[in-house]
Write a protein that binds this DNA or RNA. Sequence first.
DNA 1: CCCCCAGTAGTCAAGTTTGACTAGCGAAGG
DNA 2: CCTTCGCTAGTCAAACTTGACTACTGGGGG
Lengths: 213, 213
Amino acid sequence: MSAIRLLVLGAVRQHGRAHGYQVRNDLEYWGAHEWSNAKPGSIYHALKQMAKQGLLHAHEVAPSTAGGPPRTEYEITDKGTEEFLRLLRESLVAYDQKMDIQSAAIGFVVDLPREEVLDLLRERTRRIEAWRAAVTEHYIPEDGPGQLGHIGEIMNLWVHTADSDAAWTRGLVERIEGGAYSFAGEGEPFVGVLTEGQENPYATGEPHPGDAN
Amino acid sequence: MSAIRLLVLGAVRQHGRAHGYQVRNDLEYWGAHEWSNAKPGSIYHALKQMAKQGLLHAHEVAPSTAGGPPRTEYEITDKGTEEFLRLLRESLVAYDQKMDIQSAAIGFVVDLPREEVLDLLRERTRRIEAWRAAVTEHYIPEDGPGQLGHIGEIMNLWVHTADSDAAWTRGLVERIEGGAYSFAGEGEPFVGVLTEGQENPYATGEPHPGDAN
DNA sequence: CCCCCAGTAGTCAAGTTTGACTAGCGAAGG
DNA sequence: CCTTCGCTAGTCAAACTTGACTACTGGGGG
């Protein structure tokens, strides 16, 4: 699974009603084109596909007010909201070393209630630890790790990464327990979308160094 | 870029001459079907594609000796070897948070000479540090990190992950400096492929827990 | 002797991703 | 007044990925 569906559903949901270009702009605002596969083609494809699957409702809409071809507006359906929450929960608990999904999930984390997030994140650390245990048990030959040669460095990388991720997750749990951020049902939600006419401070920012493409 | 080309080129190269099923088996032996996109369809597609591009040479070959349809054997070309080394070097220096590519690269790391690997890995840590600096500079608003709300946790995750990866890389550099492993031009190479008739101890191992699909 | 099963080797259609391309409009400059 | 530039909004073909499916063989049980 890629991050694109979660991102697009979340973006449409925050707007209430949005056309493709608006979603594309939000994702660029979040820097998502740099750390995920949120490129124009993928976004428009995801919108159409999810509309076909009933997760979004497509309104055939008047020609653009600001130049360019006519645009289609999308609204999230009940089924779409369900799917969004399902994806979000799954992304929060899963440890699959995909930073794009993890990042996207953190971006929407405040759409869930605080207690549920804490439960999910605690489950996450449990899963990471179980995964770590399975790797060290399953991949260390009985005659000691020396038999693996340099291949052992791959397991070492995995274990190292898992430990780091577990530590980060525990830190996040502590901050949330300590009252940080404003979650679902706790008053003013944090809004990370561009309202009509607001300029995008990151849109033309220099590309992320270290970004491979 | 995905890990599939690096994996397939590397597998064919170690065999000298291999058919698709053999490559598929090696990758399963390495556990690659669990931590990368090395599924049958992708492997056969990559073989055909790279043959078309001149990276591999396809021999039309006799019907299988052990049941099943006739099989095509592939041999790596000079151009393919070049591409393999290019991909390997690139994967070793690049920091793009893709664990599958990183894992594949470590798997083939001994195909390069020790000194070059050390150079590449040191370059890697430099790039990670530069990336880290860019993230902290570019994404912290001038009125302090508080303005970001929970979005700041994404940057926190990135920085945390980058630090962990840099630390792992430095550890690997130390071990290699200390004489660990046997690199290109240093006698007996480590061979991680199954020879004809050898059984695969991991082929039917229980699936990796924590594996999302 | 026959049938079915497990293993071998690979194909295929459907879905997804990518990067390049199109096309309409307004504003600025000459 | 005309052209060109940049922004808006999206399409498209080519490549890649996925999971299910096909087809062939040898061997063992009945």
